[in-house]
Amino acid sequence: MITILLLLSAGIVLGLLIISYPRLHVINNNLLNWAIYLLLFLLGISVGTNQEVIRNLGKIGLEAIAIASLSIAGSVLLSYFLFKRLFFKHEK
């Protein structure tokens, strides 16, 4: 998986090199969108051909909602304490 992180880092460096060529940014963002579409289409195919995932789609949906709700609850609660500490203190 080191390949992935190396490619990401190489991309960031390449991005810095083309920072003042806005036309290349547009091309890059279009390619990026199509790469995402392709990968999600492929993810869809693997789901559609995977009987086990199809059978458990309801359960998978519930798991997804549970993780998302608890993640939101955890970060919102902690952000409340940060907000009171960091942003109210020096306004007094």
Binding site: I4, A10, G11, G15, L32, L39
Partner: peptide
């Protein structure tokens, strides 16, 4: 496709 995506995502962050 994922390798390509990572490179492109990096470029988009960096630029």
């Amino acid at each position: 496709a994922l390798y390509l995506l990572m490179l492109l995502a990096g470029i988009s962050i960096g630029s």
